[in-house]
C-alpha cells in the first residue's frame, strides 16, 4: 500500500459503536432504537459505584444496506471493555428476537452484529449470562431465515459467551488485529500455567487467536483490513448472500473430527493447529 492510500484510508476500529453503524448503513436510513436519551442504563453498576453509560454500551439501529432491511447491534468497546451486562445484552437479544418475529412473518431483517467484547460483564454475572444465552438462541433460530453477519474488528476482540455468539453467525468478518477466543490470555495462563500459555507473549497470542489464524482454521469466513469502506463492502456482500444452508455449526461430525485430531498433551502452536483444523475433505484432496 502506498502512503497516499494509507493516509486516505479511514479506520473502522477507531470509530465508536454508533459511528461504525452509521458508516455501514445506507445514507439517511439509520434509526436508532432505545437511544441514549431513553436512559436505559445498568441498574447494577451504580450500586457498585461505577459510572454508567446512558445506552449501556450497546447501539441498536434499524436501517438498510444496499436496500436490504437490517438491524445492527454494536457493542461500544471503550465502555467497560465492551462487556455485556443485563441491559445491553437484553437490547441485543430483544433486537434479534424481533428480527426473528419479522423473518417468520415474511419480512426478513438481516442482523449485523459488531462484536467488540470481553464477554459477560463480571459485575452483573448471571444477569449478563442469561442475556447472552438468549442471544445465542436467537442467532441459531434466525440463521434458517436470514444470514446473521458478525464483525470482530478491534483489539478488544471477542471473548467468553460472545465468542460463541460470533461462532454461531453465518458469516464472520475479522481483521488481523482482532482476536477470537472463549477465554482470554490471562484466564488461560491462570488456569493452565505459564508454560501452557504466556499471557505476556503478544505474538504468540495473536498467532493462535488473531484474525489471520482464525481465518486459516475456518472459524472466521472473511479476513479484512481495518478500512471502514472495505469492511462495509464485506458486510454488504454477506447481507446480500442470503441464509447459509446448511449452517456451518450444524456440521457436528466435522467439528468432532477436528477435536479428535488435537493432541491435548502438545502445546498449541499456530502451524499444527492449522493442520489439525483442516476439514477431512481438505485432507483427502491433499493426499
Amino acid at each position: 500500500m502506498d502512503t497516499a492510500t494509507l493516509i486516505a484510508r479511514e479506520s473502522f476500529v477507531e470509530r465508536g459503536a454508533r459511528e461504525r453503524v452509521a458508516g455501514l448503513l445506507d445514507a439517511g436510513t439509520m434509526r436508532e432504537l432505545l437511544d441514549p436519551f431513553e436512559r436505559l442504563r445498568s441498574p447494577w453498576l451504580a450500586e457498585q459505584d461505577i459510572v454508567t453509560q446512558a445506552d449501556d454500551g450497546v447501539v441498536i439501529a434499524r436501517g438498510a444496506i444496499a436496500g436490504t432491511a437490517v438491524v445492527c447491534c454494536a457493542v461500544e468497546p471503550a465502555f467497560q471493555g465492551g462487556a455485556i451486562g443485563e441491559v445491553g445484552g437484553a437490547k441485543i437479544a430483544g433486537a434479534l428476537e424481533l428480527a426473528l418475529e419479522d423473518a417468520e412473518a415474511g419480512r426478513p431483517v438481516v442482523p449485523v452484529l459488531l462484536l467488540e467484547t470481553g464477554g459477560v460483564r463480571l459485575q452483573e454475572a448471571n444477569c449478563g449470562l442469561a442475556a447472552i444465552a438468549e442471544i445465542h438462541a436467537a442467532i441459531a433460530a434466525l440463521r434458517a431465515h436470514v444470514p446473521v453477519v458478525g464483525v470482530v474488528a478491534g483489539p478488544v476482540g471477542c471473548f467468553g459467551g460472545m465468542s460463541i455468539a460470533a461462532g454461531l453467525c453465518s458469516q464472520l468478518i475479522a481483521t488481523r488485529e482482532a482476536r477470537l477466543g472463549l477465554n482470554g490470555p490471562q484466564v488461560i495462563e491462570q488456569e493452565a500455567g505459564v508454560d501452557e500459555f504466556d499471557s505476556r507473549d503478544r505474538p504468540m497470542i495473536w498467532s493462535l487467536t488473531g484474525g489471520e489464524q482464525r481465518r486459516a482454521t475456518g472459524l472466521v469466513d472473511t479476513l479484512c483490513a481495518d478500512d471502514a469502506q472495505a469492511i462495509a463492502a464485506e458486510v454488504a456482500a454477506a447481507v446480500a448472500a442470503g441464509p447459509e444452508d446448511p449452517a456451518r455449526v450444524a456440521d457436528v461430525d466435522a467439528a468432532l473430527a477436528r477435536l479428535a485430531r488435537i493432541d491435548g498433551d502438545r502445546r498449541a502452536e499456530a502451524d499444527w493447529v492449522r493442520d489439525a483444523f483442516q476439514t477431512p475433505t481438505d485432507d483427502r484432496s491433499d493426499a
Partner: peptide, 18 residues
C-alpha cells in the same frame, strides 16, 4: 435540539445535551 458526545471510556466522558 439534543446532542450526544463522547463515551464513558478511560479518560473520556459522555455528554447528553437536551
Amino acid at each position: 435540539r439534543r446532542a450526544l458526545a463522547g463515551v464513558v471510556g478511560s479518560g473520556d466522558l459522555e455528554v447528553l445535551l437536551e
